[in-house]
C-alpha cells in the first residue's frame, strides 16, 4: 500500500510579512519556515494508517525552495519512510505545484493508494492544490476531513459542512484526502526519530524532472503589498442635545461618502 503525503513549508505563524522592495514577492531571507500545520494532520493520518498496515509505505512530497528540507525531515522523524523534494521557488501557483507533486509521485514508480494533504497552506490560503492534484490523477477527492476509517480498499471519511453538520463519504481507493484540524493529534518527532530520519532516502528533483515549465503557470502575481494601515477612528461628540441633529447628519454623510457603507 502506497501512501503519499503532500507537505508545504510555510512561514512561521508569528512571521512579520514584508513585501520585497520591488513588490515582486515577500522577503524570505529572515523567515523561519515550519511545516504547514494542516499538513501535520495529513502526516499523522498516514502514520496512523501505517500502524494498522505495517507494510504500507509513507512517502512525503514537497515542492518549494531548496534552502530548507526540514518539513520533509520532520515528517520522516515522525515516522514517514521516505521523501521527495522538488526544488522550486516559493511563489509557484497552485496548478504548477499540483503538477509538480503529481510528477514527483509518479517518479517514485509506485501507484498511489491514498494521497493525503492539508486542506490549505496557511501562507497563500489557496485551498485548491489537493483538488487540482485529484483532477490531474483523475481520482476522487474529499476536503476538510475530520474523520477517517479504513476498511480494506475503501475509506470512510467525515467532513464538516456549514452549521456544524458532518457529511460522511465512503470511497474506494485510490483517493485524495485533504485534512482539517480535529482529524487527529499530530505526534512529536522523537529524538531517536530525528536521528533515524537522517538515514532515510530523500530524492532531490528539479521542476524539469517532473515536467513543469513556465507555461504551466496559470496565475501570475502582479505585485505584493501590505494592506493600507487602518486610519485612526473618528469620535463625534453628541452630548449637547441641540447639536445632535447636526452630528447625526455628519456621521451619516461620512458613512456614505468616506466609509461607503450606506
Amino acid at each position: 500500500m502506497n501512501i503519499f503525503v503532500c507537505v508545504k513549508q510555510v512561514p512561521d505563524t508569528e512571521t512579520k510579512i514584508i513585501p520585497t522592495s520591488d513588490g515582486s514577492f515577500i522577503e524570505t531571507a529572515s523567515i523561519k519556515w515550519i511545516m504547514n500545520p494542516y499538513d501535520e494532520y495529513a502526516v499523522e493520518q498516514a502514520l496512523l494508517i501505517k500502524t494498522t498496515i505495517p507494510e504500507a509505505n509513507v512517502t512525503v512530497v514537497r515542492v518549494g525552495s531548496v534552502k530548507d528540507t526540514e518539513a520533509l525531515r520532520t515528517a520522516m522523524a515522525m515516522g514517514a519512510d521516505e521523501a521527495s523534494h522538488v526544488a522550486a521557488g516559493d511563489n509557484l501557483d497552485s496548478y504548477s505545484i499540483a503538477k509538480a507533486l503529481k510528477g514527483a509521485i509518479e517518479k517514485t514508480g509506485r501507484k498511489p493508494d491514498i494521497i493525503l494533504a492539508g486542506k490549505q497552506a496557511i501562507d497563500d490560503d489557496c485551498l485548491q492544490v489537493p483538488q487540482i492534484l485529484a483532477e490531474m490523477f483523475n481520482l476522487p477527492s474529499v476536503s476538510v476531513i475530520v474523520g477517517f476509517e479504513m476498511n480494506g480498499t475503501t475509506v470512510k471519511v467525515k467532513r464538516e459542512v456549514e452549521g456544524g453538520a458532518l457529511e460522511v463519504y465512503e470511497i474506494a481507493t485510490p483517493v485524495v484526502l485533504a485534512c482539517n484540524k480535529g482529524l487527529n493529534t499530530p505526534r512529536y518527532a522523537s529524538l531517536p526519530g530525528i536521528m533515524k530520519a537522517k538515514k532515510k532516502p530523500l530524492a532531490q528533483l528539479s521542476l524539469a524532472d517532473v515536467g513543469v515549465t513556465d507555461a504551466d503557470r496559470r496565475v501570475k502575481y502582479s505585485g505584493f503589498k501590505l494592506p493600507p494601515e487602518k486610519p485612526a477612528g473618528k469620535k463625534f461628540d453628541a452630548t449637547d442635545a441641540a447639536k445632535q441633529k447636526d452630528v447625526v447628519a455628519q456621521v451619516v454623510g461620512l458613512l456614505r461618502t468616506e466609509a461607503k457603507v450606506l
Partner: peptide
C-alpha cells in the same frame, strides 16, 4: 547543524 536545529525545535515545541 540541521540536526541540532531540529532537536531544538522539538524541545521548544515540547
Amino acid at each position: 547543524t540541521s540536526e541540532q536545529r531540529e532537536i531544538r525545535e522539538l524541545a521548544l515545541k515540547f
